[in-house]
Design a protein around this nucleic acid. Structure first.
Lengths: 221, 221
DNA sequence: AAAATAATTTAAGCATACTTAAATATAAAG
DNA sequence: CTTTATATTTAAGTATGCTTAAATTATTTT
């Protein structure tokens, strides 16, 4: 039986494994979910018993095929809702994540298919994240580099923003750094690895931490 | 703290009080919610402690002002979702109720206001039920009579269908008895109180139990 | 009005999903 | 390679919301 709580665990493990490229520790998971280590440890046993994760005590956990299927399905629902809320109900970039976080657990496959159809079977959500298809396939992300590695003088297009906190999203919105926004790299300071970019005729300085969250693809004229 | 479960209790009490026009017994509530009497009795105590219902042991319960406020808010969310799902996502009349039943508990006021705005501040849902406004006011239902009391030879318009089971709704859909559908009373059989109606050039016989679920207003030519 | 029946509540127990505190395993430091 | 520190798990306890079975209250029947 897959409850809200379990769906959130699986989704979070999925994301952490992607970041890590290795097994996830209970404490890592606990930190992300903002619950105690004990709770995570407890749940790991249950998820393992149900065959949704591979879990080795004191080592860490990874999703099984079945667990990954559920995780991807939750992510599919989340990202479709995000896009839907923005496109149809005009929610802002910063508002969609929290709403989708709730709705993702209470949307039947039937309804999510209707939403997908209404949106014209989109491949990417408002943050540039790929939307898993009904069959579990995940659209490929190609030609994207972190803004940190962009080169001075060249032009790029924002393809993905790897952060869900509405704080950062609101900041990017202010700068005009929306999805598919075009920018030029004006300068890179080796001093602190900050980057000077031009967007809509204005210049902004981004710290390397912030630049790391933005993925772009080069525009070749 | 208002959980999903409590929201459902309050909503159901609200509807039962309307039907009853008197206090609701724990067993009545248990039957509607399809849980044990014991569970209902247990919850009644908690809701009473929280000031959401007035509850007299062995007698029954009624909503307090605060409890009614929550109930009306849940109903508002439910009915707005129903209309939204039908209008925007083309779900059928029989499909919207079950989906809305889930979504009603996980929709922020912010989002529900957006939905309301998108629909143009509607007053009635797809079943003809009034949609509570943001301030708690409930649009008036005027000039409606049960189909049982309609008179032979006169024409009526369907204004409200008082049943949420998709079984009956699907049946009405087949007959063309949608919201605002026009019909004429062809005959009334005193034998079993059934009614013969004409819709879209076809005749159908409705039992009095079924006719009781349909509310109409007369069309005066 | 007393006995029988029905409705309702209380009691005990279970599953989920947390918590804090104690115990145990792993990793790091000397 | 032992000691210390850190990470992780287990144990015990809590809250919610259900269950069945027993006890209690209310309502009928006679």
């Amino acid at each position: 039986m897959s409850t809200i709580s379990k769906e959130n665990y699986l989704k979070t493990i999925y994301n952490l494994v992607c970041d890590n490229e290795t097994a996830v520790s209970t404490s890592q998971l606990a930190a992300k979910l903002e619950i105690s280590n004990a709770a995570t440890s407890d749940m790991a046993k249950k998820l393992s018993d149900q065959g949704l994760i591979d879990y080795v005590k004191y080592k860490g956990m990874e999703l099984t095929e079945e667990g990954e299927k559920i995780a991807i399905d939750v992510i599919r629902r989340h990202r479709l809702w995000e896009l839907f809320l923005m496109k149809v109900l005009n929610l802002s970039w910063g508002e969609v994540h929290d709403e989708a976080e709730n709705l993702e657990h209470f949307t039947s496959n039937f309804l999510i298919d209707k939403i997908e159809k209404h949106l014209g079977y989109p491949k990417f959500d408002p943050h540039g994240e790929p939307i898993p298809q009904k069959n579990g396939e995940i659209p490929e992300i190609t030609d994207q580099i972190s803004l940190t590695f962009a080169e001075v003088g060249r032009e790029y297009k924002v393809m993905r923003v790897y952060d869900k906190s509405s704080e950062l999203i609101d900041y990017f919105t202010k700068l005009g750094l929306l999805l598919y926004a075009e920018l030029v790299i004006q300068d890179k300071l080796s001093f602190d690895n900050s980057i000077l970019i031009g967007v809509n005729g204005k210049s902004h300085s981004l710290s390397s931490e912030v630049a790391n969250k933005i993925f772009v693809s080069e525009i070749r004229n």
